[in-house]
Amino acid sequence: MPLFSGRTTRRSRVVPALDDADLTRVLRQLSRRGVGGRALEVAQVSTLLEETGENWDRRSHRVSVLAEATADTEIASSWLARQPQDADALVFHSWVALVRGLRHRRLDDAARLVSQCHRAAELRPADPLPWVVLLGMARIERYAQNDVNALWREATARDRWHREAYLQMLAHLSPEEGGSSASVLDFIDVVRTRIPANAPCAAIEVTAAVRQYQGLLAQGGVRAMTAGQLWQSGQLAAALEQAASLWAKPGFFQHAGTLADLNVLAYALCAAGRAADAHDVFQALQGTVTPWPWNVDGDPVQRFEQHRDKAERGRLGSAGRA
């Protein structure tokens, strides 16, 4: 799936599948509910995941997007009822339950879901996804940190730089979910120097900073007024500098969540007062918008376009002064 193949401006839109054409096709088919019946819907999802094979990064992206898209349907339950010992069916059903659980901050029959994940892990031992789902469940159930660390080790032992595993751990540690800013910083300090620059989880430091920045804005008052100082930290400024110079280059990133990470980087650069540096990132995105981080203060597409236009003006202004 070629990224950044064209540089002509496209209409900005939220694209859950990002650059995944096969996933886009299945989502479009699923949107025509009632056409072909439940059996066909199950077949469309199961076939796509089967075709993904052992590309754990791409499987995670497809499972998470499909789970979000079908969480209000019975597709996952129907699939599991038909194939109760199928690893994909077990993982998908558990991930759909996780999506619902995160919406309502509770899990229905958590013990059963844990059992499903362990069974999926038995059926496909190399797959990190059952352990990643368990990490997500730990966010809701608020497992003890030692237990969360054990799940983390299982997931990353199978795929060391698994993007979704890092995001689930970051969310678990965040103050919004019962953790603390100190816990997040400790986690970032531990992993920062180990992650290759182009790994699927390479955006975790910038992602954590955006979450912290938005948290400060949400508090209002003095914290909101001084939130911009966050980006002046030497370590974070250096991380942004490296990301701005590398991430938007064609071929630098190859993982399924590349366009989502570029959305985070574009937002971070604009928040840091570096709109001109975000220009190339917006160009690489070609109008592909993710709801977060743009949706915290308005319509994500509108906010994306406002910042994109500001970045364009900033680039033109910089060129004029050169």
Rank of each mutant, 00 (worst) to 15 (best):
A244C: 13
G34M: 03
K310Q: 07
R38D: 08
E41Q: 03
P130Q: 15
T8F: 08
Q85A: 06
D147V: 15
V184H: 07
L113I: 09
H104I: 12
L236R: 04
S64D: 15
D22S: 11
V264D: 05
A197M: 05
R38V: 13
Q242P: 01
E68L: 04
N263P: 05
F92M: 12
F282E: 09
A165R: 04
P130V: 12
A260R: 03
G221H: 10
A17L: 04
A248D: 12
F253V: 02
L246F: 13
L18W: 11
T156E: 03
R211W: 11
T207M: 09
V184Q: 02
M225T: 08
T290I: 09
A87W: 02
R33V: 13
T8A: 14
R158A: 04
Q283I: 03
E176H: 07
D309L: 14
T70F: 00
A97L: 07
N263K: 10
A268M: 01
S5I: 10
G53M: 03
R32I: 01
E154N: 09
Y166D: 07
R112D: 08
L102E: 15
S46I: 07
A322G: 05
A271I: 01
Y213N: 12
Q219R: 01
A138L: 06
W161D: 12
A21P: 00
R82W: 14
P175V: 04
R194N: 03
D57C: 10
E122T: 03
W95K: 08
D109I: 12
L185P: 09
R7G: 05
R13A: 05
A239N: 09
A239F: 05
T290D: 14
P125G: 00
D22V: 09
E50Q: 02
A218G: 11
F252I: 00
D127R: 01
M169V: 01
R28S: 04
L285T: 15
W79C: 07
A67N: 10
L134W: 02
W292I: 00
G220L: 11
A165P: 05
S78T: 05
G251V: 13
Q254K: 15
Q85I: 05
H93D: 05
G34I: 09
A87E: 14
R274G: 05
L98D: 13
L316Y: 14
E41A: 13
W79Q: 12
D186K: 12
A272L: 08
G320V: 08
T226G: 02
V45R: 01
Q44M: 05
G136W: 00
Q145Y: 13
R59P: 02
K310L: 12
Y166N: 07
A278Q: 06
L236A: 06
D72S: 02
A197E: 06
G6N: 15
V45E: 09
R82A: 15
P125H: 12
N263D: 14
P175N: 07
A278M: 13
R58V: 11
W152V: 03
T70R: 04
A260G: 02
E50G: 15
G178N: 08
V96H: 08
S180W: 08
E312P: 00
T226K: 11
V132N: 02
D108N: 09
R153Q: 12
V96N: 02
A197F: 08
W95Q: 00
L80T: 07
R62N: 10
